[in-house]
Computed example of a mutant assay.
Amino acid sequence: MARDFLPGFAMILVQLGFAGMNIISKLAMDSGMNPFVMVAYRQIFATIVIIPFAFFWERNTRPRITGAILFQIFLCSIFGATLNQCFYFLGLKYTTPTIACALNNLLPAVTFVMAVPFGIETVGIERKAGQAKVLGTILCVGGAMLMSFYKGSLIDIGESSIHWRYAENMRERNSSNENNTFLGPLLVVASCIAWAGWFILQAKLSKTFTAPYTSSALMCFMASIQCGVIGVCFERNISEWSLGSDIRLIASVYAGVVGSALAFCLMSWCIQRRGPLYVSMFSPFLLVIVAVVGWALLDEKVYVGTAVGSVLIVVGLYAVLWGKEKEMNQISSVDEIDLEGEEHEEKYDLELQVPVYSNGDIIQNAS
């Protein structure tokens, strides 16, 4: 029973880590840090952290790394690390964490649509499981859109007593910075498409290369080179690469260790066991967590749109998970029936052949 809850618990930890990364990274970029520089440092720190786990935990079980495997990991690094994170952090710079997290909830719908042509997911609209997945995806996207575009009246839930004064001062210092209401959301949507592509590629990779720590280490290493080249192209001032500021150092290390190393390993492990849709459907929790943390630490207000959207997201999440779980149970039941049928057929053939062919006396013993 505990093993059934482990993937869900792991994905909740991932979303908690992402929530902290969104807030800290936004503060670092408000302090003037280039988003491409942050992404490059994120991959470097992630590679350093993952390599020891990959070496010691998988050195005896690691499958042979072929050229085809390296190419698949290279594609995963482009979509899952470089494009996804560059688009997201650049979009986060030009918008708010709440809007970025809200638009990020398009990921389940994009993943579901992209996974169907590859045969990784099936619609099965005639079954309850398929109906639950489709309805849950619609509810999740609808809740995210509601939180993004409908504010509503203020919900008076009091004030938090644990405000983060540093964050408040940073916001006041950069209050003159204008958000690009078109470019920011557009880049976040682009990051969702890239991330959904990584889910599909990772699902294919996990079937042929069952070493998630090794694949994550290689992916982050390749992404370090890719993001480093992009960072140098957009930021050639050496002083801007300095991590002398506390918030820049904390944001880079946190993003690398928690946002990449821990997150990629846990997500790869969950994809291998439950599939890409299961992993992507936990992304709505990020929006709820950011809303709660924003109220507690940053004194952000809670509105009707936020509350109703959060409810829709959670309901939709569990609808899809229920449908996915029911679908997996049905597949397991069919496999068990087929296996029992093969065993019965093999046993029947043996019983038939022994009296017929023993001692070569076929005619007499056949009767």
Rank of each mutant, 00 (worst) to 15 (best):
L135P: 03
Y41M: 06
F282P: 02
I51G: 00
K301S: 11
S280P: 06
V279S: 13
A203Q: 10
E58N: 06
P117Q: 10
I120K: 05
N105C: 14
V356G: 00
P185C: 12
L321M: 07
S161R: 11
Y94G: 01
V356H: 14
L107Y: 09
T122C: 09
L103D: 08
L107I: 13
A296V: 15
V293L: 15
G32A: 00
G309N: 01
L187D: 09
P276T: 09
S148D: 05
I289Q: 05
G184F: 01
V290K: 07
T82D: 08
S224Y: 04
V134P: 12
S31R: 04
G228L: 08
V356Q: 10
L298Y: 13
A102N: 15
F209K: 06
S280K: 05
C86G: 00
E345I: 04
N105H: 08
I162Y: 14
S367Q: 14
F282Q: 03
S252Y: 01
R62P: 01
F5G: 03
W269H: 14
A167F: 07
S239W: 10
A129T: 07
E325I: 09
N105G: 08
L70G: 13
M114R: 09
E300S: 07
V288D: 10
N177C: 00
C86D: 15
G124N: 08
Y303F: 15
F89K: 02
P7K: 04
M145S: 12
T137S: 07
E351R: 10
R165I: 15
S332M: 15
F89I: 01
P7M: 04
A190I: 08
V258P: 01
G309M: 09
A115P: 06
S268M: 09
Q43V: 05
I337W: 12
A2Q: 11
Y94P: 00
W322K: 07
A102V: 13
S332L: 14
S332E: 15
K324R: 02
R173M: 08
I363Q: 13
L312K: 06
I51E: 01
G17F: 08
R236T: 13
H344N: 14
C265W: 04
A109C: 11
N180W: 01
G316T: 03
E159T: 11
A251Q: 00
L92H: 03
V311T: 11
L16E: 04
G8L: 00
